[in-house]
Amino acid sequence: MNDSERKVYRIAWNINHTKSRHTTYKELLFKSGRTEKELNEVLQSLVDQKLIWWDKDKTKDVAINKNGPISAFNKFTN
C-alpha cells in the first residue's frame, strides 16, 4: 500500500468510524487533495486489494470492507 492509498483509506476509515456512515467521493476529493483521476486510480487499487467497496457508477460512495480491513492495514504498518 503506497502513501496515497494509505491516506485515502485512513480518511474513509476515520469517517466510517467517527460518523458511522460511508464516505462520499466529494469528501475524499477535498480531504485527500487528489485530482479526480488520481483518486479514481487509488480507489480502484483499494478495491483490487479488497479493502473497500466503491460504487463508482451511481453515488461514488466508498465503504470500508468489514471483513478485516484493519488487519490488512496493520500488515502494512507493522
Rank of each mutant, 00 (worst) to 15 (best):
R6S: 12
H17W: 09
L46H: 03
D3N: 06
V42H: 01
R21C: 04
S20A: 09
A12D: 05
K60V: 02
N74T: 06
E38R: 12
V42K: 00
R34Q: 12
R10K: 11
E41N: 13
L29F: 04
T23K: 01
D3F: 07
D3T: 06
K50E: 15
I52H: 03
S4W: 02
W53Q: 04
K66W: 03
L28Y: 05
E27V: 07
K26Q: 07
H17D: 04
L51F: 02
I11F: 09
W54Q: 00
I11A: 08
R6A: 13
A63P: 02
T24Q: 05
I64S: 00
G68K: 07
N2T: 03
T77E: 15
V8Y: 01
N65S: 08
F76R: 09
F30A: 13
N2W: 02
R10V: 15
Q49E: 15
K60Y: 02
Q49I: 02
F30V: 09
N2L: 03
F76P: 00
W54L: 01
S45F: 05
I11D: 07
Q44W: 12
T35K: 14
I15L: 10
M1G: 10
T35G: 10
Y9F: 15
G68C: 10
L39T: 05
F73M: 14
K7Y: 10
F73D: 14
V8K: 01
S71F: 13
S32N: 04
R10F: 11
R6W: 02
K75D: 10
H17F: 08
Q49A: 14
L51V: 05
N65H: 06
R6N: 09
N40Q: 11
K60N: 08
R34F: 04
S4L: 11
I64N: 00
R21I: 02
I15M: 05
L28W: 01
L43K: 00
Y9W: 15
K19F: 09
D61Q: 15
Y25S: 05
N74H: 09
T24R: 10
E5T: 06
